[in-house]
Nucleic acid binder design. Structure first.
Lengths: 150, 150
DNA sequence: TGTAATTAATTTACATGTAAACTATATTTG
DNA sequence: CAAATATAGTTTACATGTAAATTAATTACA
């Protein structure tokens, strides 16, 4: 369905506003899709994001701070989030000896296994994303950067 | 700052994935900006969205159901949201006589006044949005629609 | 007509987002 | 070196997102 039908608004004060609202709507739509696919695995998109980051750095562990930095979304309650991942035995937490304020978090074998399962589950997104051409995608990225940094 | 610096990730498996993540990141960034600007008025983006919808239909009142439909974001707890707007005396709620299940909500004079104040406060977004050209904006809208409906 | 199905909204319960206060440790500097 | 400052992470508190259960009224239909 077209955006303007979805929110039952036919006219917008400018194409730019329409594009922005459409972008916000689509981001939320995608988040919903992701939530749905992750639900059987008892993971939220945020938790999945952390697992992705940890897999990326594996076998190196990361500090809570540097995980935060890499996250797509605003700083949630990291301690709580990591607690839940530990409860599911997907990550490991260990203190640092040199600097005792620092806590390292790493992905566990369980976590790695789950992630490869998820790769398959989430591969539907690759298909969906094919509707964007490569050049088009680069254009979109560039437009997004420009909006934020202007 | 460019997206890849923001999340400290240099390479992506495809330009499409990068564009998608950038879009999600930017949507969240924008939401943050909006939250910030609305904070002095004790309004959340969701509440603002409802006020916009109600101003759009003014002087006609809308049912809770049709407000939901028009909202940009997934159905929150409408009753609670409207309760808060009523507590701030920005909207009015009244039952329907013909169908006693239905509840109408309309914007109050207070609400209208606040909205015109907000028009000024939020006009910074119009400036930011000028970084997108008209054609570019239409391209983005079209790409968003395509992603969801593919 | 009366029972079932549907619809509209509310209520409840719980997860997550978000900010602020707090604790512990490390670093800087007078 | 001691006090002040900065940093890392945790804890707490509250707002909001989200889904499911509930209530009430309406509509369909056997």
């Amino acid at each position: 369905m077209k955006f303007e039908e979805s929110i039952k608004q036919e006219t917008f004060s400018s194409p730019q506003i329409k594009a922005l609202l459409n972008m916000m709507y689509t981001a939320n739509w995608f988040m919903g899709k992701q939530t749905e696919l992750l639900k059987p695995y008892k993971l939220s998109p945020q938790q999945y994001n952390v697992l992705r980051i940890l897999r990326g750095s594996h076998p190196n562990k990361l500090t809570v701070h540097s995980i935060k930095e890499r996250m797509l979304y605003k700083t949630p309650n990291m301690t709580r989030l990591v607690d839940k991942l530990i409860a599911q035995e997907l990550v490991i937490r260990e203190g640092c000896i040199e600097d005792r304020r620092v806590v390292y978090v790493g992905i566990s074998q369980n976590g790695l296994d789950l992630m490869s399962q998820l790769d398959e589950t989430l591969s539907v997104f690759d298909t969906i994303l094919q509707t964007w051409g490569e050049e088009e995608a680069e254009l979109i990225s560039e437009a997004m950067d420009r909006l934020r940094t202007q």
